[in-house]
Design a protein around this nucleic acid. Structure first.
Lengths: 247, 247
DNA sequence: GTAATAGTGTCTCTCAGACATTATGCA
DNA sequence: TGCATAATGTCTGAGAGACACTATTAC
């Protein structure tokens, strides 16, 4: 067997990268930052950074998320603070994925409600919300692809989000604390890129136990007849699941 | 912002750990090896080892799997060689998870057919297939828990396998190349820990397009009336999914 | 009024779950 | 002959999908 001597282990750099998704104007968008230094200088990239010697992976991801967006993270067993859902996505460690040194990146997926300000991070780098279709289909807005292997990471994050809102109540993470059935339906439509029947959708989500709880109030912020406001119920898994229509 | 100088990155050790599952005698079993050195000397642990400087994560996992079991790995886009299914599970990086040094472990999940020999690895360490219920419920066979955080990793792997055979054809990875509907049903029963109706199961799996293709032959290795033999079809996702009965 | 969205009801078809019977090989 | 397992058929109820109508606000 070829077990290494632990005192002579090969050293790696470990980072966290973030796929932060939100729904803006009926489009699924991801947070990207512009790189100010080589390699890939001037390219758009996913936010991220090195894991510190004394912090865990989820901790590092939550710290980076707070630095980039000001959001507190809701982990699975998480806090009650207002903020985003955060979960580990996958780990990317191809030997040549960073030309400088051997970097293993633990990617995380964050789902956030539409933020008033797509505010840049604390430093001078610029940041923006970009529709994922623009980022994944033939490069970015200038035809420039994402830095490193970030396009693959983003694609995996988007696919995770698309499949996970089927059988979990995670779609509510894209909504503000109080939301209407129509707003939740537009989240599903934006993430899946489909059109859903409003009547069947309403019957389904209100009939799934623990998914939605009425908050009592109503709103007309979408125009038309006043709509009932709901909060996310306690249920995390949906039974029966929402079904994504096939093309 | 607190971006580290890449030339002064904090060094980590990166390992791969393997959750190798199989079905033996109507029980879901995991491969564990006995540790010959501290820490956790004498404890059972998941097989694994350090990632080498020039290999990728999946590559390292496939190498460890071959060393421990002799199986070739079938990755998602993988080879045609006879062997096990292998996929990345999750990454574990709590700062104190290894008392010696900072280790980030990228856990992988492997699903294998029942192997004739639970043969130990190339070195002198002993290895065995242990029922996961025994490993997860109140420690191992001697009441000894698994080393490090391996109980949590194993639990995550088992849950991944349990949920993934619902909507994918992965259950066939537990079967030999040719198998009967009854054998496949016993896989589902063992992994889920339930009893399934043979008639409904037969109707369901044979009616799902692309799941099973008849190989033409029959067998009586289970006794009783000769059963038709099948191979795994090309389908990877099942539509409609198999439904896990609730307790 | 018009326009916009919210909310409810009905029908049909597919499928999951419960259940009985016949078929075939081995000891 | 007895026993094991395989394979097929029928019924019923739940739920998804298609579709029409009424309700309530803003302008």
């Amino acid at each position: 067997m070829s077990r290494y001597d632990p005192s002579a282990f090969p050293p790696f750099a470990v980072t966290v990268d973030l796929v932060v998704l939100t729904v803006r104007e009926h489009a699924l968008c991801a947070l990207v930052v512009r790189r100010g230094e080589p390699p890939f200088q001037g390219y758009w990239a996913l936010p991220g950074g090195f894991v510190r010697p004394d912090e865990g992976l989820a901790e590092a991801a939550a710290r980076e998320l707070a630095e980039e967006t000001g959001l507190r993270a809701h982990t699975a067993h998480g806090q009650a603070a207002a903020g985003a859902h955060l979960e580990q996505l996958a780990t990317y460690g191809h030997p040549q994925r960073d030309p400088r040194l051997r970097v293993v990146s633990v990617a995380h997926l964050a789902l956030a409600p539409d933020l008033p300000t797509p505010r840049p991070g604390g430093d001078a780098r610029s940041a923006r919300w970009a529709p994922v279709g623009e980022l994944l289909g033939r490069g970015g807005e200038d035809g420039v692809p994402l830095a490193f292997d970030h396009a693959a990471i983003l694609a995996d994050g988007v696919e995770r989000a698309r499949s996970k809102i089927e059988y979990s109540s995670l779609a509510t993470a894209f909504c503000p604390a109080e939301f209407t059935v129509g707003e939740l339906r537009r989240v599903y439509e934006s993430v899946w890129g489909v059109v859903l029947d409003p009547r069947n959708f309403h019957r389904k989500v209100t009939g799934t136990p623990g998914f939605l709880v009425p908050s009592g109030g109503t709103t007309t912020r979408q125009g038309g007849r006043p709509a009932q406001l709901f909060r996310a119920g306690g249920a995390t898994v949906l039974n029966p699941p929402m079904l994504r229509p096939e093309p």
